[in-house]
Structures are given as C-alpha cells and as structure tokens.
Amino acid sequence: MNPFKRSPFVIISTVLVYIFLYAPIVVLVLYSFNSSRVNITFEGFIPTFSERVVMDGSTVVSSPCGPFHWFCDLSKNREVMSAAKNTLTIAFIATIVSTIIGTMAAIALQRYDFRLKSFSQLSLYVPIVIPEIVMGIGILTLISQVFGWVNTTFALSGDARLSMGLFTVTISHIAFMVPFVTLVVQARLQGFDKSFEEAAMDLGANEWTTFRRVTFPMILPGVLSGALLAFTLSLDDFVITFFTNGPGSTTLPIYVYGLLRRIITPQVNALSTVWILIVFTVVLLLQIVQSREQSKS
C-alpha cells in the first residue's frame, strides 16, 4: 500500500481550502495597486510615472510612484509610521521579557516541586481557556481603578496623571504571551533527558555553568520558537491592545480597525501588502533555515 496515496476527495478539498485561504489575500494585494481612490471596484493599475499625482475624480491617472502610488502615500502617513513603531516596540520588549520569565517558569514547572506549583500551572492555562476579551476588560478595569485611585489620591494633574499607554499595553501583552512561551518550552523540556545535566555536573560544572553550557544550548530551539510565537502573537494582537492602549500607543491593528470603521482606502491595502510581504519573507527564511538544519543532521 502506498502510504502517500490520497483519495481524490481529499485532494479536491485540499485545493479548495488552499484557494479559500489565499483568495482574500490575493484580492487584497491586487487592490493595493488599484487606480481608484475610493477602492470600490478594481479599475486597473495606476499607469504612468509623472512628476506629480494627477487625479481624475477619484481615479489616479498618474503618479510619480506609478503602480506603487498607494505605498508612497502610505510612507507619508505619519500615523501609520508611528503605529508601526509602537507595534514593533511593544512586540520587542514584551517578547524579551516574556521569553525570559516564561523560560524560567517552564524550567521550574518541569523540573521542580514547589508549593505554588499547581497554582502557577493552572494560571498559565487560564488565558487559553477564556476568551481574550474577558482578560482584556479585566485588565482595563484593574488599570483604570488603580490609575484613578493614584490620580485622585496624589492629586495629579496634566501630564503627571497616569494614563493608558505603551507601558500598559506592553505589560498586558506580556501577561497573555507568557503562557504560550512557557507551554512551548515546557513541551521541549519534557523530552529532555536529565542525564545531560547530571553528566555536566559529574564532569565538574556547577549549576550555573551546567545551565549556561549544556541546558540552555539544548533547549534553545524551544526557547526560540516560543519567542517567535510570542512575537507574532504580540504583532497580531488586537483585543488586549484595544482595551489597554491610550493616546500615543496606537498599534497597527488598532489603527487599521479605526480606519475601517470610517473609510476604506487603498492605503490599508498597501499596508496589508507590506505586512504580508514581510510575513512571507520571514516564513520563507525560517523554512530555509529549518530545512538546512534538517539536512545537516
């Protein structure tokens, strides 16, 4: 029996599901080159290059950037640029913190017995089994209560008043990312033979050296995939950010959402295209790296 034999039903369904997955993305990208400003129907690519933008009603007749008119337009959009900066800042900081503390927790949960162990483990499962919005409004309530209390008690005013911002978004991101990092690293540690560490200690390495030279290099792939997962979760997050952001801490998903509720512009398509391109490149690079690793061993 050929193990790779699949029935026609499976093959047809697979093709259809892949079309379902990719059709919206293709349309999205296509429209980012649309000459219509209102972006309702596809009127064709923006044709010619010229010194300045020429409009005919809502149609772009020519642009210095040619078909990439909306991308040029986007790059001039200060709000988008600051949202992009916020998104990356939050993702970087939250990923670093959650990876470090999540890895520590994973080691503790996998290797040690301690009093709060079951509480720790349970609290890590909670974010997976409750909808994000529940956590989001919970954090919103807590922060607004605490900030409100501090502001009135210390009679803070003006800029001194505590308000939602990059800080609140980042700490909340860490809270929902840590469980994923911990679970990924824990899964990695499960298959980890303790005798590697015993061997290191047996050969004269103390606990810290053992961790630095043996344990960490061996769980590094797990830590990295945990970090990568955390990073993408942070980039992708809408709900938690929605309830914890404030003036000046708008992220890209929040910005796009705000825009979509008012107008639809090809700028959003251009933004999406850039995003997809980045994701595609990263995923491709990862696959190349991974297949290299596999062929090596």
């Binding site: 005798s195 590697f196 061997a199 200690m201």
Partner: peptide, 20 residues
C-alpha cells in the same frame, strides 16, 4: 557534596553526550 565536587566520574546508560 554536589557531584561536581566529588572525585568520581560517570558513564551514563544513555551516554549523555552533549549533542551540541
């Protein structure tokens, strides 16, 4: 006394060679 302060060394059943 921790293992790293004992003058004995071990050959493990799984060898425990550091893969990296």
């Amino acid at each position: 006394t921790p293992p790293f302060q004992r003058k004995v060394n071990t050959v493990f059943q799984s060898y425990a060679l550091f893969q990296h």
